[in-house]
Design a protein around this nucleic acid. Structure first.
Lengths: 207, 207
DNA sequence: TGTACATCAGTGAACGCGCGTTCACTGATGTAC
DNA sequence: TGTACATCAGTGAACGCGCGTTCACTGATGTAC
């Protein structure tokens, strides 16, 4: 039953990617080793051939989720039309949609793992912190570029990036929290934060 | 061993309050029925004399956490000095402190239960949604009052409230996620969102 | 008001179940000669 | 290049443990007469 090194490495990565999705959907403590391995197409005994512990896997899964999110972010910013400002606007608008809200397993790890990470061991938290720092710095660079284009200087871009990321993550997390129980409120939360980035989405008429 | 109705009701409330703290700290799935009852000073068997299920308890605990948070919010807004704007500013600044960050069990349920609520049954999510709606409407009323004082009209106060709550919750949740692994980043997240509400906290000098 | 009995909050043992982890085993791959 | 053996990814049973929930029991409270 021994596999080639290449196949073993591919299987290992497949387990990490599966965990990355499942953990975002159900939370780290909501994913059992047996569950995970079954979902990945294996029996659970082989888990410890790849990982020292569930915690070690969780840290790798968290890192993998951020890798995916970052490459998505870079791609979105790279192909933006009409200047860097437009690209960021488009990214933020797409982030704050019901589609993203309803897809935690494929969506933003900052939002899906936020509360979890604070309760996990430092190994997981470190992966989260590295990913968050990377996202913030990409946002800051983009905002600085945008401000330079607008001849406004790059002052405080990092602080601006922090606040923007906080609002995006907060809105997504709150929208998810009430999505089933109060869909109208959930949609309202998303659109409130989305509107400032949209030229086609005017504020609802005053009652 | 039968207790008076009053004592039984007090014990029940004590269990709910204990659960409210523990769930915010460890997450709903992180609190066992036996754990909880022991922490409250009872043996675990009696749990089902008070609650139909752990889920029912979780919903009551979530509701109780929001009750406490709301009364804290009302109190803070009621005793604000220098107009309603100052009171809200003070509340937001205190919300975004390391002290609050490091006290999830006594702190904001929106932040502590956000990701959890999205994964829980509708009973819990409904309690969360009710609480969130109440917080947002208190914020909106306060912002409307503040804008009226500044003769700016009350336009879009609710939308403004939504965005503010999203940013506050996002910042707190992100700050907690990286508090151990990257304390400097954690503090930076809080101060970025806190500064606009503070007159005494100027932006750090440009590098 | 006094007595007899039903109620029910709390106790602690027990239930089946799934958890993370360990283990002996299999057999194709990788390596030493 | 060919043979002999060590390696190790995957299997599936088993481990101790804690989970949510149920149960028979206790005895003071609440109630009916």
């Amino acid at each position: 039953m021994r596999l080639s090194k290449e196949q073993a490495a591919r299987n290992r990565q497949h387990i990490i990617d599966t965990a990355s999705r499942l953990c975002r959907e159900r939370g780290i403590d909501g994913v059992g080793v047996a569950d995970l391995m079954k979902e990945a197409g294996f029996t659970h005994g082989g888990f410890y051939n790849h990982f020292a512990s569930k915690e070690a896997l969780a840290a790798e899964a968290c890192g993998a989720a951020f890798e995916g999110a970052l490459s998505g972010l870079m791609e979105a910013l790279g192909q933006g039309r009409g200047g860097s400002g437009a690209a960021l606007s488009q990214y933020v608008q797409q982030y704050l949609t019901p589609t993203h809200r309803d897809d935690p397993s494929g969506g933003c790890p900052m939002a899906a793992l936020a509360v979890d990470a604070g309760r996990q061991a430092e190994e997981v938290q470190a992966a989260y912190a590295t990913g968050l720092e990377a996202v913030v710095s990409v946002f800051a660079r983009q905002l600085a570029q945008q401000k330079a284009e607008a001849k406004g200087g790059d002052a405080a871009s990092r602080e601006h990036a922090m606040r923007l990321v906080s609002e995006m993550v907060g809105a997504l997390v709150l929208a998810r929290a009430v999505a089933d129980a109060n869909p109208a409120l959930s949609e309202e939360i998303l659109s409130a934060s989305r509107r400032p980035f949209s030229k086609q989405e005017p504020r609802a008429r005053k009652g």
